[in-house]
Amino acid sequence: MKQRRTSLKDLAEELGVSIATVSRALRNSHEVGEEMKAKVKVLAKRLNYRPNPFAQSLRKKTPRVIGVIVPNLVTHYYASVLDGIEDYASCFGYSVISSNSHESHEREEKAVENFISMHVDGIIACLAQDTVDYGHYLQLHDMGIPVVFFARTCLPDMFSQVVANGDEAAQEATSHLIGAGSRRIAFIGGPNHLDMVKRRKHGYLEALREHHLPIDRELVWCGRIDFDEARNATVRLLQSEKRPDAILAFNDILTYAAFDAIKTCGLSIPNDVAIIGFTDGDSAAFVTPKLTAIMDQANEQGRKSCELLLRHIKGDQHIYKEIVPMILKIRESSEKH
Rank of each mutant, 00 (worst) to 15 (best):
S99C: 13
A230W: 08
H105I: 03
A20H: 10
K242G: 05
N165W: 05
E210P: 03
E210A: 15
A298K: 05
K110W: 06
R243W: 00
F115D: 08
K329P: 03
L47S: 09
F149S: 13
S117H: 10
L328R: 03
L208Q: 05
R303V: 08
L8V: 01
E335S: 13
S283K: 08
F227N: 05
H212G: 04
D87E: 15
Y204T: 11
D272C: 03
P244S: 07
D316Y: 01
T255P: 03
L15Y: 01
K110T: 14
R183F: 01
I330T: 09
S117R: 14
I269K: 07
E218V: 07
A293H: 00
M143F: 05
A170R: 08
A246R: 03
D195S: 14
E229H: 14
Q317F: 02
P191K: 06
V68P: 04
E113A: 05
E172L: 12
L155H: 12
C126G: 02
P214K: 06
C265I: 00
A180F: 08
R199W: 09
V68R: 14
R236Y: 00
R107M: 09
I313S: 05
S268I: 10
K110F: 12
I124Q: 06
K201P: 03
I253T: 15
D228R: 15
S29F: 03
T153Y: 03
I85S: 15
G179L: 00
G277Y: 07
K336S: 04
M1L: 10
E108M: 04
E335A: 12
I319C: 07
D133W: 11
D142E: 15
L219E: 06
D216P: 07
G144P: 09
N72R: 13
A207Q: 13
A128T: 01
G84W: 01
R236P: 10
A258H: 01
I319K: 03
A284N: 01
D130N: 08
L310Q: 11
A38W: 10
I85F: 10
L205G: 08
K61L: 10
R224H: 14
M295I: 12
K110L: 15
L140P: 01
I313W: 09
R50L: 13
I330E: 09
Y49L: 10
C91G: 13
L254V: 11
R5I: 02
V148Y: 01
I124Y: 11
D142M: 07
T255Q: 00
Q129R: 08
V197T: 15
L155I: 11
V197W: 02
T255H: 00
S182V: 07
S182R: 07
M196L: 11
M1E: 07
A186T: 07
L58D: 04
V70W: 06
K321M: 14
I313M: 08
V132W: 14
V324A: 02
D296P: 06
R24Q: 10
V96T: 12
I215K: 03
G67R: 04
Y49Q: 05
D282Q: 13
R224C: 09
M295T: 06
N114V: 13
V40W: 04
K198F: 12
K336P: 04
S7T: 15
